[in-house]
Design a protein around this nucleic acid. Structure first.
Lengths: 248, 248
DNA sequence: ATTCTCTTTTTGTGTAGACAAAAAGGGGTC
DNA sequence: GACCCCTTTTTGTCTACACAAAAAGAGAAT
């Protein structure tokens, strides 16, 4: 019944601190275990760092690191003078890897292929001007690209790059590799907004993906700024049936 | 042009280390700034901790903490003996808050209302048995609940709870508050799988949400284990147009 | 009771030094 | 070259101590 999350020195469900010196990892495991087994229930106050250091025959520094990390992970809340408290809804935070499409595909063991569908320099469409708070009549480079996994359509990328923010982009060649690769190499980024939503395949999208008009499509949207200046906005449409998964 | 991400002691775009002692936060800012301004470009090797400690007139311990955290945040890769290297795709990790539905709604300033739609004790459907690797013929409690924001349908929750793993669940009353609240209070959790996908509103779902059959629906799926034993599986269907957003 | 100030507790962070552990690189052997 | 062993560099972690800073709580003044 007990699996690998339970520290090795637990016997019969009772958490015992081992005699020897414990690393901050060991301490994290014991504390997390006590939280999960309601020894320290929701909202309850943990002993102070010094007291815990004595129990684990460790030092305050080490206990501090263990508790600090558990707090970062969303299990505890710490306040000076008030002490350390167990949060009632644990793991409020999920961490997602946001890989490059190519990595996502090759990591899955499939062959990656890229194809540029459309390239167009144009005035910023009004929705983009509004969304990014652009000054009026900015020029943007609009690109549409397809990413294939084992020659099956995997992702349709629609991207807009603000020319004023990255003038060199007009000279870049996107026939062989995608704009993401180029941007990552060329532009230091500073700020990112990421969102997920569901949409319907329109005729255009359905044509590129292996989809029928009206199919539900999982999509993500990314906007990137560099020191407050918008650089690029991209919408990524995934193949029907795509599921984004994480474990914690 | 330079905004708040740039440390205060930067002058004219050139990063200068101040004379006085720097905190690990200061060091993080300077290092991050150098990464973003390509002073330390992608794949380049940073100086060792001791050297940096001298530059910042700090100690290795403090520099270590700064670099360690930047590595956790996805900017750097550190390996013993090989040193610290700048990753080419920064911020590969996005952190998401996974709030309780109630919090999500009340935090947005709306009024939360809950309603139990269906409660049924049944043998585990075969897809669930397969998905969770259950022993055959387990009993599950199936629930369907609606969550409203300002009396508009916000989320439809379909949940299955493995009775064997949490026998007390049969006595719980879910007419006033949802199973999530109960589970969070009652069951220590240990392991979670979370996934996002797009689906179509079927007739049943469309009836509960303010949707038409065929509308694209953003949905999330959560499976929870306790020490290797599956506890509950839930699918949450959001109202059409819902967007999940994060910034980093 | 309210507001203010002061004290005190608790976590936050920095310093200095030590040893551990991973892993790259060198040198040798086959 | 391929393989193996040893050295050495670099990060990982622990200890012990110090002072800083937030914030709760007590007590005084109003």
């Amino acid at each position: 019944m007990y699996n690998d999350l339970i520290p090795a020195f637990q016997i019969g469900g009772i958490v015992a601190a081992p005699k020897g010196n414990m690393s901050y990892r060991d301490i994290k495991k014991v504390v997390l275990d006590r939280i999960q087994n309601r020894i320290w229930g929701p909202d309850s106050l943990l002993p102070g760092e010094i007291e815990l250091a004595e129990e684990f025959s460790s030092t305050r520094t080490t206990v501090n690191r263990a508790l600090r990390e558990l707090a970062e992970e969303g299990f505890l809340e710490r306040k000076r003078k008030a002490g350390t408290r167990v949060l009632h809804s644990p793991a409020r935070k999920a961490q997602f890897a946001i890989p490059l499409v190519r990595d996502e595909i090759t990591d899955a063991g499939a062959t990656y292929r890229y194809s540029l569908v459309k390239r167009e320099v144009m005035p910023a469409p009004s929705w983009l001007t509004a969304k990014l708070a652009l000054k009026p009549d900015r020029e943007v480079l609009h690109l549409q690209c397809m990413h294939f996994a084992d020659n099956e359509p995997f992702q349709l990328e629609k991207r807009w790059i603000i020319v004023e923010s990255v003038p060199e982009v007009l000279e870049a060649d996107f026939t062989a590799s995608g704009p993401n690769d180029w941007l990552v190499q060329k532009v230091p980024f500073s700020n990112l907004e990421l969102s997920f939503f569901a949409t319907k395949a329109d005729e255009d999208t359905a044509g590129f993906m292996d989809a029928s008009v009206g199919d539900p499509i999982f999509a993500t949207q990314r906007t990137t700024w560099l020191r407050g200046e918008p650089v690029t906005h991209a919408v990524l449409y995934f193949t029907p049936g795509y599921k984004m998964t994480t474990r914690l």
